[in-house]
C-alpha cells in the first residue's frame, strides 16, 4: 500500500459525473457552477475512486507486457486458480464509507495514505467461508488538511460467491 498523490482535474470530474449518470452542471459547467451555491465545480461524492488511476499498486488495470486476466484470444489471459475469477478479481466490494471534511475541487492535489483495518470472517449463505478485510484511506490536500476519510471492505469468498457482496 504505497502512498501516492493525484490531481483533481475538471475534465476528470466531468467524465466521472457522466459515468455515474449525473448531468448536474456543478460537475461540468464552470459558469453555472460558479453561480450556484457550490461557488464552482466540485467533485461528486464518490469521485476519489479515480485515485485507482494513480495508484502504483492497483491490480485492476492492464499493464503493458504483463498478462491480463480479462479475455483476448482466450476467455482469460491467465490460468484461473480460484473459482469466480480468483487472482486480482477474486475479491468483491462489500462496503464503502466516506466521511467528507470538505468536497474536493479542481486544483486540489490529494495525497492518499492507506492502512489496513479490521479483518473478520462469516459463513456465506451457500456454505462457503467469507473473509472480509477493511482498508482505511485518508485523502489530504496540499496543506496537509484532511479532505476525505474512506473505509472500504472487500470480501473474498473461499468457495462460492455469496449474494452478500456485489462487486
Amino acid at each position: 500500500m504505497a502512498d501516492f498523490s493525484f490531481p483533481v482535474e475538471a475534465g476528470q470530474i466531468m467524465l466521472f459525473a457522466r459515468a455515474v449518470g449525473d448531468p448536474n452542471p456543478v460537475y461540468a459547467d464552470p459558469v453555472a457552477a460558479a453561480a450556484s451555491e457550490a461557488g464552482g465545480i466540485l467533485a461528486p461524492p464518490t469521485f476519489v475512486q479515480v485515485a485507482a488511476h494513480y495508484d502504483p499498486d492497483w491490480q485492476l488495470r492492464p499493464e503493458e507486457g504483463k498478462p491480463w486476466f480479462g479475455s483476448g484470444r482466450t476467455a482469460s489471459g491467465v490460468t484461473q486458480t480460484e473459482p469466480h475469477g480468483g487472482g486480482p478479481g477474486g475479491g468483491l466490494h462489500a462496503e464503502q464509507h466516506f466521511e467528507y471534511h470538505r468536497h474536493p475541487r479542481p486544483g486540489d492535489v490529494l495525497a492518499v495514505a492507506r492502512r489496513p483495518g479490521d479483518t473478520w470472517e462469516k459463513s456465506g449463505r451457500r456454505g462457503g467461508r467469507l473473509v472480509f478485510a477493511e482498508v482505511i484511506s485518508e485523502y489530504r490536500d496540499a496543506a496537509g488538511e484532511l479532505v476525505i476519510t474512506a473505509r472500504n471492505v472487500v470480501v473474498r469468498p473461499e468457495r462460492t460467491v455469496d449474494a452478500g457482496a456485489a462487486g
Binding site: 467524465l15 485515485a51 485507482a52 488495470r61 486476466f69 479475455s71 476467455a75 475469477g85 462487486g167
Partner: peptide
Amino acid sequence: MYAGASGDFNPLHTDDVYAREAA
C-alpha cells in the same frame, strides 16, 4: 464508462466472455 472513469478495469464488469467463461 464507469470502468474508464474510475480506473476499475476488473473484466467482471466489462468483459462478458471473461465473466461467463472464466469467472
